Amino acid sequence: MTTPPQFNQPGKADKFAPRDNPQWIGKLFLIYPDSVSPQTFSRPDGTQETSDVVTADVVIIDLPDPQTGQPTTLQGARIGGKGLVPQLRKMVGSMVLGRLSKLPSQGQKDGAYVLADFTPADAQMATAYVQAHPRTAPFAQPQAQPVAQAPAPQAYAPQAPAYVPPPAPAPAPTEGPSPLAQFLASKGVPVTGMAEDQMRLIAATYPDNPFR
Rank of each mutant, 00 (worst) to 15 (best):
residue 48 Q to I: 05
residue 31 I to F: 00
residue 93 G to L: 06
residue 69 G to K: 08
residue 87 Q to L: 08
residue 37 S to R: 01
residue 81 G to P: 05
residue 63 L to T: 06
residue 73 T to Q: 03
residue 66 P to D: 01
residue 37 S to G: 02
residue 71 P to V: 01
residue 103 L to I: 12
residue 29 F to C: 05
residue 75 Q to D: 00
residue 24 W to Q: 08
residue 43 R to V: 11
residue 73 T to H: 07
residue 90 K to D: 12
residue 51 S to E: 15
residue 55 T to E: 05
residue 105 S to M: 15
residue 45 D to M: 04
residue 22 P to W: 13
residue 60 I to Y: 05
residue 64 P to F: 09
residue 27 K to C: 14
residue 29 F to A: 03
residue 58 V to Y: 09
residue 35 S to W: 09
residue 42 S to R: 14
residue 47 T to F: 02
residue 67 Q to H: 05
residue 44 P to E: 08
residue 37 S to D: 02
residue 35 S to M: 14
residue 72 T to F: 02
residue 101 S to L: 15
residue 25 I to W: 10
residue 34 D to R: 15
residue 56 A to E: 07
residue 28 L to M: 04
residue 28 L to E: 03
residue 45 D to H: 06
residue 63 L to E: 08
residue 33 P to H: 03
residue 54 V to A: 06
residue 69 G to W: 07
residue 64 P to C: 12
residue 108 Q to C: 13
residue 24 W to P: 02
residue 73 T to N: 00
residue 27 K to V: 12
residue 102 K to D: 11
residue 107 G to H: 11
residue 93 G to E: 06
residue 67 Q to W: 08
residue 38 P to V: 14
residue 84 L to Y: 02
residue 63 L to H: 10
residue 66 P to Y: 00
residue 26 G to P: 00
residue 58 V to S: 05
residue 41 F to P: 08
residue 27 K to F: 13
residue 29 F to Y: 04
residue 33 P to R: 03
residue 106 Q to R: 08
residue 90 K to S: 08
residue 94 S to W: 07
residue 103 L to F: 13
residue 45 D to P: 05
residue 80 G to T: 11
residue 91 M to V: 15
residue 66 P to Q: 03
residue 106 Q to E: 07
residue 40 T to R: 05
residue 93 G to F: 06
residue 38 P to L: 10
residue 35 S to V: 13
residue 110 D to Y: 08
residue 31 I to Y: 03
residue 99 R to Q: 04
residue 110 D to E: 09
residue 93 G to R: 10
residue 100 L to S: 00
residue 87 Q to C: 06
residue 58 V to T: 04
residue 84 L to P: 04
residue 76 G to I: 00
residue 36 V to M: 09
residue 87 Q to W: 04
residue 81 G to I: 00
residue 32 Y to F: 07
residue 95 M to W: 01
residue 61 I to W: 03
residue 87 Q to N: 07
residue 82 K to D: 09
residue 86 P to R: 09
residue 103 L to S: 10
residue 79 I to C: 02
